[in-house]
Amino acid sequence: MATNIGMMDSAYFVGRNEILAWINARLQLNLSRIEEAASGAVQCQMMDMTYPGVVPMHKVNFDAKTEYDFIQNYKVLQDVFNKLKIDKHIEVNRLVKGRTLDNLEFLQWLKRYCDSINGGIMNENYNPVERRSKGGKERFVRTQKSSKSLQTSNTHDHAIGDGLGINKVAGTKLGRQCPVSSGVNSSVEIQALTKEITNLKLSVDLLEKERDFYFGKLRDIEILCQSPELENIPIAVAVKKILYAADEKESLLTEAQEIIHQSMDGQAKLSKEGEEED
């Protein structure tokens, strides 16, 4: 259902406390600051509640920590807006900075929009926690289920043992007869696994720092190319063509080079014509 609403002035008078209460009540969250919604995940789920099944929740990252991850969430949200033909431009560059005012204004607009659909009536069949599990929490959910299954299995085995009338004293003696080496082996394995986990965490930290380092450079280049005085400069156009490419194309670099070459040829031609006139 294509919907296009204008932002009512009254929507801007909705305070941050009301916005936070609205988010927490509907999505079963516990946000205390507007900035906590800067990742875009909350906005994606609000649209998912308003239009069940429209948002690809498996693409929404609720654990987003960097601007790069935030931008990916807002891309999902913008795709949903385009799909629903909602004429609303998302100021991603401002929102990902986590500034309170920018995020509050966008959430005010979002609340006004969601309240305009079905009279703002909450979808009672919507399970926000379950839907969030499809946005990056599967591992946590599966771990919980595995833990419960293991606990149930242990309880079941214990009940069977008692039903067979196993002598608890004999069981205790049997436990004392277990080789000490098994405990030693377990301790060694735990130490090895702990060391491996530590090394993996260090590797992940280094990779994240490297990713953020190069992403920061790309953002600086993008901002520079968006400067009004450079907007139509061929080199800026070529760089933006590479930055904004959605798919990997082998010919992309060639196309960017052609833009620059055509500009250089044009300048050379104009220069030659000017010399001939002189």
Rank of each mutant, 00 (worst) to 15 (best):
Y51G: 00
Y51P: 01
A192E: 07
E275K: 05
E18H: 15
V14C: 13
Q78H: 04
D9C: 04
P234H: 02
Q177Y: 03
I5N: 13
T50F: 06
V169L: 05
N61M: 01
N4P: 03
V96W: 07
L230Y: 03
L200N: 07
D69V: 00
E258C: 15
N232T: 09
R16Q: 15
N61H: 02
S146C: 07
S10N: 12
L206K: 10
D220H: 02
P128L: 00
V96E: 06
S182D: 05
S149K: 08
V237L: 10
I160E: 07
I86Y: 06
E277L: 13
G161Y: 10
K241I: 10
D102C: 04
D102I: 04
I197H: 08
S39A: 07
V14L: 14
L207T: 07
N93G: 09
S39R: 07
A170M: 05
V141K: 04
R139N: 09
T194D: 12
N4F: 03
I117R: 10
G163K: 14
L270P: 07
I223R: 04
S271K: 02
D212E: 01
I90K: 00
M8V: 15
E210N: 11
L193V: 10
F140G: 05
S133P: 03
T3H: 13
L84I: 00
I166T: 07
N30G: 11
V14Y: 06
Q267G: 15
K97M: 09
P56A: 00
K148N: 02
E138F: 05
Q78P: 01
Q108S: 08
K59L: 08
D162P: 05
R33Y: 04
E105S: 08
A246F: 08
K145V: 00
V80L: 01
V169A: 05
M264A: 15
M264G: 10
N24E: 04
M264P: 10
Q267W: 14
W22V: 14
E208S: 06
K85R: 06
D63C: 14
R176K: 02
V96G: 03
D87V: 01
L202S: 10
L84T: 02
T172A: 01
L150I: 09
M57Y: 10
A238P: 12
L84N: 00
I23E: 15
N103T: 09
Y244W: 05
R99K: 09
A11L: 11
S146N: 08
A11N: 13
K111Y: 13
I160N: 06
D115H: 13
V237P: 09
N17P: 14
L95A: 02
Q72S: 07
V14S: 11
A268H: 13
N73D: 03
R211C: 01
Q177L: 06
I242G: 08
L77Y: 00
H261Q: 14
K75M: 09
K201Y: 10
M7V: 12
R33F: 03
E231T: 03
V96I: 11
V96C: 03
I121H: 15
N82Q: 06
T198W: 10
R99N: 04
